[in-house]
């Protein structure tokens, strides 16, 4: 499928467009927030602690539209910049996981043999330990930091992608256009990259949307278990878990990042569903 046809088809899918626009909006807002928010996300100001949300009534951004947290920091500011942290983590993890997964999947699917056997058994093993537990162990050992978090999620994340791409590679391996390329003397790398990889792009995009949302969710889980982004740098995960003790007195500290997170994951799920719809052979448009 040509790239332009692909774009045209996708722009017709309401689900995709809603998801995509929402994602662009969220990313732009979060990414630029440091230049237009009035408060520092990290410096605490104990005289201002646990202020209730004023919903932009006190001079808009100069007040505390979403209130302040237990350390007197503006929740909205932290929400936006924490979002940027969470989004960046999710983006990097997704990108690297997908790249490794696609590479491994193509190689194992195309070459097969002992290498394929070994890699697939490793995948089996990794898949049979619940993700969170494995991540918990690894981060606990490495110590919690941004880098370790990203490393761990990537180390686990490539597995499902590798399986998806491998099955596509297996399916296309014996098709005639591959044989034709071989006969024409195309190099193995060319076949893998130019002939087989494009067949897996749809699946990859769907998997990526799901994995992006999933990573944001896992980050909250790990944050809660004390293995997330280290304080004071805000992330949606550590904002939610830090609000635990003040749940009764200041519910807004927890509710705001939870809703932001939900909207973001929702947008990615929409986008994934949209892509699936567009490529569903049953869908004629």
């Amino acid at each position: 499928m040509k790239f332009s046809t692909l774009l045209r088809k996708m722009s017709k899918s309401i689900l995709f467009m809603v998801g995509f626009s929402l994602i662009v909006l969220i990313i732009l807002t979060c990414a630029t927030s440091s230049s237009w928010t009035q408060w520092s996300p990290t410096i605490s100001k104990l005289t201002e602690r646990l202020r209730e949300p004023d919903w932009f009534a006190n001079g808009g951004l100069a007040g505390h539209p979403l209130g302040t947290d237990p350390l007197g920091r503006d929740v909205l500011t932290r929400l936006l910049q924490g979002g940027w942290t969470s989004l960046q983590i999710a983006f990097i993890v997704t990108l690297i996981s997908m790249s490794i997964g696609a590479f491994v999947g193509l190689i194992t699917g195309y070459f097969g043999g002992v290498f394929d056997m070994i890699v697939m058994r490793i995948c089996d093993v990794l898949m049979s330990i619940p993700n969170i537990m494995l991540a918990l162990c690894v981060v606990a050992i490495l110590g919690s930091s941004m880098f370790n978090l990203i490393f761990t999620l990537t180390a686990i994340g490539w597995v499902s992608t590798a399986r998806i791409v491998r099955s596509v590679a297996l399916k296309t391996k014996h098709q005639e256009f591959i044989s034709a390329s071989k006969v024409l003397g195309a190099s193995t790398w060319r076949i893998l990259w130019k002939e087989m990889f494009p067949n897996a792009i749809t699946q990859l995009m769907i998997a990526a949307s799901a994995y992006f949302g999933g990573t944001i969710l896992v980050e909250t889980n790990l944050s809660y278990l004390g293995m997330g982004v280290p304080v004071p740098q805000p992330s949606w995960g550590n904002m939610i878990s830090d609000g635990r003790q003040y749940l009764a007195a200041a519910p807004w500290v927890v509710i705001a990042p939870g809703i932001a997170l939900m909207l973001t994951v929702l947008a990615f799920n929409f986008m994934g569903d949209g892509i699936r719809d567009v490529f569903d052979p049953r869908n004629k448009n």
Binding site: G213, T220, S223, P251, V254, L261, M262, L266, N269
Partner: peptide
């Protein structure tokens, strides 16, 4: 749609807030 997009930690807190607190 919402159930698939919700953080389990956050859901736990919200449940506690509503039904517990």
């Amino acid at each position: 749609i919402i159930g698939q997009s919700m953080s389990i930690v956050w859901l736990g807190f919200v449940l506690i807030l509503i039904f517990g607190v």
